[in-house]
Structure formats: structure tokens, C-alpha cells
């Protein structure tokens, strides 16, 4: 009975996505609807366009923008977060500013960066970095202030140097929270990449989708959306992999990674 139940569960889990895709294929094929083209056409566009020359001309520029902006903000935010996390007064004094930028809907900054930095690659990378900065910063600060004071005092009592304390007590203690911030920021990075390419760009996945929409090439548009889904999925999985490796020692790591 018990084994039977588990088999049913696993079968359900694997079968449902296939059933849904098949249902779409069966629903769309005879209809030939303009906005919801047959599955075959979408897959053909996926293969011919996105997995063809667009890998280099559009997909790679988008990935590069995300990675550059995201890494830049990760470095800045963790550094700044350490400074603010370790100094109580600085933290309290800057709390409203951090809170403000964290609450600001990120796309509101898009007109600003276009105004100040233009529409080039640098502007996009800096926009992504700016938007990703605050969730990581806030989480780093929370991670550091959340460390049990006894831990740091014990370390100090055993004569561990300031550098050793930072490297071996504060950093590991804050890492789970830092990764939570990194995950939030990574999805923001994808969002900002897409909308900055919608609004003004000459290449990139977002640009490709927007152009397809303007030309009413609907299968190409849907296939581009699928590409973005795959990209989001892969980036998310990659970060989770890094996290579970880095935090393998952390008991709550698995829970936090979910």
C-alpha cells in the first residue's frame, strides 16, 4: 500500500507537466490561433533562431550583463554590509536610506539611468548592479547583527585576532543570510536585464522578444519567453548549487536553500 502510494506520487509528478504540454499542443494545433500558435511552430523558432546565431548575438550579451552587474553588486554590497554590520552607529544612521532604496520599485530607476548613463552596455550593467545592491546589503547587515554575541566574545576571549574573527566567525555566520540576499538579487538582475532591453537595446534576449512582438512574429516571441524561463531556471539552479556547496557545513543550509 505504502509503496503503491509512492509510485503514484512519483508518476503524478512526472506526468503532469507532460500532460499540460500535450494538452496545449492538442488545443493549439487545430485552432491555429494567432496569439497561441501550435507548439511545433514555437519549437521550430526555438531551434532555428534562439539555438542558432542568436546564442552569440543575443543570449550571450544578456547573460554577460546579468553576470557583470550581479557580481559587481555582490562585491560592493557584502563589503558595505560588513562596514555597516560591524558599526552599530553607522548602521542605525543609514537605516532609513537603506530601507528607502530597498523599498523603491527597481524599474523606477530605469528612466534615471537612461537619463544619466544613456542606453549602452555600461548603463545596463550599472543599473543591474544598483538594483541588486540593496537586498544583498540588507541581508548582509541582518546576517552580521544576527550572530550570537557570545560566539564573537568567545572568539575574542581565546585571543583570536580581529582578522581571524572576521574571517572565521563573522563571515561564516553571515553567509546563510548573504545567500538569501543573493537569491533575491539574482531574480531582480534578470528582471532588470529584460526590461532594460525592452526599453532600449540593440541586442539581447529582451530585445529579441520585443522585436518579435513588434513584427508580430508570435512563435518567435513565445520561444524567446521560453528561453528567458530556461535562463532564469539555470541561473537559479547554479546559485543554489554554489550555495549548497559553500554552506555544506551549515545545518540549516538545506532548509535555507529551498
Amino acid at each position: 500500500m505504502k509503496r503503491n502510494g509512492r509510485t503514484v506520487l512519483i508518476a503524478l509528478e512526472i506526468a503532469t507537466p507532460f500532460v499540460l504540454v500535450t494538452l496545449y499542443a492538442l488545443w493549439a494545433a487545430p485552432r491555429d490561433s494567432f496569439f497561441f500558435p501550435p507548439l511545433g511552430e514555437i519549437l521550430a523558432a526555438l531551434r532555428a533562431d534562439w539555438f542558432g546565431e542568436r546564442i552569440l548575438s543575443d543570449i550571450w550579451p544578456s547573460i554577460r550583463r546579468i553576470l557583470l552587474g550581479f557580481s559587481l553588486s555582490a562585491i560592493l554590497a557584502v563589503g558595505l554590509g560588513f562596514a555597516l554590520g560591524l558599526s552599530r552607529r553607522a548602521r542605525i544612521a543609514t537605516a532609513p536610506l537603506v530601507e528607502f532604496f530597498r523599498a523603491l520599485p527597481p524599474p523606477a530607476l530605469l528612466p534615471l539611468t537612461i537619463l544619466v548613463l544613456g542606453v549602452g552596455d555600461v548603463a545596463k550593467v550599472l543599473l543591474i548592479a544598483l538594483v541588486c545592491l540593496f537586498p544583498i546589503l540588507q541581508n548582509t547587515i541582518a546576517g552580521i547583527t544576527g550572530i550570537d554575541p557570545t560566539l564573537r566574545e568567545t572568539a575574542r576571549m581565546y585571543g583570536i585576532t580581529r582578522r581571524g574573527e572576521l574571517l572565521h566567525v563573522v563571515l561564516p555566520g553571515a553567509l546563510p543570510a548573504i545567500f538569501a540576499g543573493l537569491r533575491t538579487s539574482l531574480s531582480l538582475a534578470v528582471i532588470m536585464m529584460v526590461i532594460s532591453e525592452f526599453v532600449a537595446a540593440s541586442n539581447g534576449i529582451g530585445f529579441g522578444i520585443w522585436q518579435a512582438k513588434r513584427l508580430f512574429d508570435i512563435p518567435l516571441m513565445w520561444s524567446g519567453i521560453i528561453i528567458l524561463g530556461i535562463l532564469g531556471y539555470i541561473l537559479n539552479m547554479a546559485l543554489l548549487q554554489i550555495e549548497s556547496r559553500v554552506l555544506a557545513w551549515h545545518r540549516g543550509a538545506r532548509k535555507a536553500a529551498e
Binding site: 503514484v8 503524478l12 507537466p17 526590461i195 529582451g206 518579435a212 516571441m221 531556471y233
Partner: peptide
């Protein structure tokens, strides 16, 4: 069990990607 994978695949799609559609 039936919806877990569907959710796992749909969730990471950046919703802004759907704007044109």
C-alpha cells in the same frame, strides 16, 4: 506531487518576460 514540477518550472520565469505577450 502533480503540481510540484509545474510550479518549479513556472516560478523562475521572470514575469516581466511575459509583458509583450
Amino acid at each position: 506531487a502533480s503540481l510540484r514540477l509545474v510550479v518549479e518550472f513556472l516560478r523562475p520565469i521572470p514575469s516581466v518576460a511575459l509583458i509583450p505577450a
